[in-house]
Write a protein that binds this DNA or RNA. Structure first.
Lengths: 100, 100
DNA sequence: CGTTAAGTTCGATACTAGTCGAACTATCGA
DNA sequence: TCGATAGTTCGACTAGTATCGAACTTAACG
């Protein structure tokens, strides 16, 4: 499995993060990830096909919102919460306070 | 002059706000508006044509980020800061802390 | 009025992004 | 090793969006 590209926290771009969060499907993914330690792609699809989910996770990963690590045949995704809170204090809280 | 449509604070949609902020031109507008009481469209174009600016201001208005009021022949735009802070505490701060 | 100035609207174009099926890859288990 | 499973990649289609010139609207001022 190819390793994923995860930008370091000092390369996070606000525009990219906002773009990632401007899609309802991705906003929902982020919110659901906030309640768990990690989740697989399959656990978070809302009936959407796998190729669509893969696309959304890639956007979230490249924005720096989500970290994905392979665990056997499945991928565990987690919110990069502490890094995001350090780099953009208040942003994630604002998102999550909205619709818990 | 046609009155502008300004959504009430309880109709702000996070997706729409994020989309509005995902464009570099609009992010810059918001940041510059944070430093002044109000500004006209012309004061904030970065050499961009008026039709482009008008487009961006409409997106910002309809997301609830900016309020526009006509003052004679020019339009005064201001950040809806208190309403945004009430509805999404921390969000605007996160944006503005980033690049003052 | 006629003019100037500030923005808006319209229309065309180009680019960007979301959706989803099909084929591919990698890993685990029988 | 064969098959099943989880996810990625590819390709095509579609929908949305940015850009910008040109025409239009509105208001202030001679």
């Amino acid at each position: 499995m190819r390793p994923f590209k995860h930008p370091p926290a000092d390369e996070f771009a606000l525009e990219r993060i906002f773009h990632a969060l401007s899609d309802p499907a991705r906003l929902e993914i982020v919110r659901r990830l906030a309640h768990v330690e990690a989740a697989t792609c399959g656990e978070l699809d809302g009936g959407r096909p796998k190729s669509s989910m893969s696309h959304h996770f890639r956007i979230l990963r490249e924005a720096g919102l989500v970290h994905t690590r392979g665990a056997g045949t499945l991928h565990q995704n987690s919110l990069r919460r502490t890094e995001l809170d350090t780099r953009f204090p208040g942003l994630l809280d604002a998102v999550l306070r909205q619709a818990p």
